[in-house]
Amino acid sequence: MSDEVRGPATRATLDDAQPVLSVRNLRKVFGTQVAVDDMTFDLMPGRSLAIVGESGSGKTTVARMICGLEKPTSGTITACGRDRSKPARRGSERKARGREVQIVFQDPYSSLDPRQSGAELIDEVLRVHHDHDAADRKRIVAELAEVVGLDQRQINALPKALSGGQRQRVAIARALATDPRVLILDESVAALDVSIQAQVLNVLADIRDDRGISYILISHDLAVVRQLTEETIVMQRGVVVERGETGQVLDDPQHPYTKLLRASVPGPGWKPQRMRDRIAAQA
């Protein structure tokens, strides 16, 4: 790992040098389509890794395999020393895996049960995963609400009474309830308004600093990637085409695909270029 120390990295104490998540030669084939091919990476405690790429690059498939929603065709995934590349054989094993790795999905409008308040949702997660009494659970619900910046009324409200940003905070609080070591953020801030996105990104940075959780951020938004992560993996059609320190990948991309991604982001002085002109310019 790089020796740059910033915020959460200080939590990755030197004697704690075991990766919290280890992915080796991961491969997933759907029919004849190779969705993910030979992916390997380590995630250290308290660090954040971005996986970027466009639709169909396989980034969400990687996330789904890590949480056990999809079975790898081959390769291994080890989280907290536990192999999770094969389906869990027992309920207790499945629960243990659920505790270690949690995910926050993109759309807070479809990822919450409309009949359940945030408080009830978190309480349920706590009952399934931990041995707290009712008073303890109530205290933890209040703590988690505070962590994600929801007040008592909001955490006790049904999703329909909440805005997108507030719902996404409920989803983050739910994911934190198992006290995970790894949190997967699958386009978790993409659907939010600019002003709300900034609030949620700040909350995520605080949580990482306070709890030493590791993040995997699946995103197509390179500015968000820059803000939240230290390392970046670029995927194209299931294959890792570039990886490195986030700042370096974005400031000095090496692979043609990464260069194309970077050049497609609008900014001052940006001029959109048509594919045919781009190809002509290269010829």
Binding site: S163, G165, Q166, D193, V194, S195, I196, Q197, A198, Q199, L201, N202, A205, L222, A223, V224, R226, Q227, G247, L250, D251, V265, G267
Partner: peptide
């Protein structure tokens, strides 16, 4: 409020409320 692709802000200047 928008993150910047060319630098990491210590903290984003979020707009309170919605």
């Amino acid at each position: 409020a928008r993150p910047d692709i060319s630098s990491t802000a210590e903290r984003l200047v979020a707009i309170p409320g919605r």
